[in-house]
Design a protein around this nucleic acid. Structure first.
Lengths: 146, 146
DNA sequence: ATACGATTTAGTATAAAATATCATTAGTTA
DNA sequence: TAACTAATGATATTTTATACTAAATCGTAT
């Protein structure tokens, strides 16, 4: 019973903060995404929640993820390939991307990683919130195959 | 007549270097991409070259871009949204991405930008070839609207 | 130059991912 | 609780990408 979930109250506050209605569907999608640690796609989220919650349609999952990412409640990732991936702002991290097979790995940010924002290049009026580094390369598997 | 194009000879060498056949279709796709400076999608490239070159099918554009990106002759970009974008390794650059509207701008790399590869975080056996920094933020237009 | 074997392409069909529309339902505010 | 507004579900459709195979083209050795 989602509405009796103790987390629902704080979720209601979160939504109010952004002027959004705190629907059960939004709560379930948000909770499911927060539990998943592997940058799921909209479809992966739907498949995960559907067995327990037939009350959420696939359509709504797409729409809710879009709404939430526009409000920056969740994050829309820039993965390679042709499917949009999401995450729920867990811990900040960078990406390791194999240009051969397209696989993506997370790498945590390092103390002293020495990435600063080169403001000299950022046009006036653009408000930078965050940065992500994508490392392109070849993964061990693909190296072995070639 | 593509084959009489003076650039075709150097393109032939490029392909030979990677063990790829230097077909007219590949040449046209490559040339078209090199002319386009805005990270086009496969479809945008097809629409651009089609009026002049009916001899290249949409299917081939997708396949050629995939082949070339696997060989790192071109680059497959990690844009937000659900369509794969490409560029032709013109000049190295980073990206400025508006999380609100999804628009992307290039920013050139800076002398002294101070991005080094933190090898401590890269798993053994992964060969890093390049890195790109994505700056997430809000563009002036979207800032004005909200 | 020509012919042979190996790649590559075109075309059709199909799959996967995302969006549009609108009547119905649910959430918020008073 | 009632009225108003916003969100959902279902279906249909669009967009993006892939599978498959006969025919054409490319590279290599003659």
């Amino acid at each position: 019973m989602p509405k009796s979930d103790p987390h629902f109250q704080s979720f209601r506050k979160l939504c109010a903060q952004y002027g959004l209605a705190a629907t059960i569907q939004r709560f379930i999608v948000y909770q499911t995404l927060a539990e998943m640690k592997n940058h799921p796609t909209a479809d992966m989220i739907y498949e995960r929640l559907h067995p327990e919650h037939q009350t959420v349609s696939r359509m709504s999952v797409y729409r809710i993820l879009d709404t939430f990412s526009r409000h920056r409640i969740i994050r829309r990732l820039n993965h390679p390939g042709s499917v949009t991936h999401y995450d729920a702002f867990m811990e900040p991290h960078h990406h390791l991307i194999c240009v051969q097979c397209g696989e993506v790995w997370d790498i945590s940010r390092m103390e002293g990683e020495n990435f600063h924002i080169p403001t000299g290049n950022i046009p006036d009026g653009f408000q930078v919130l965050d940065l992500t580094v994508d490392f392109q390369g070849i993964c061990p598997n693909c190296l072995a195959e070639s």
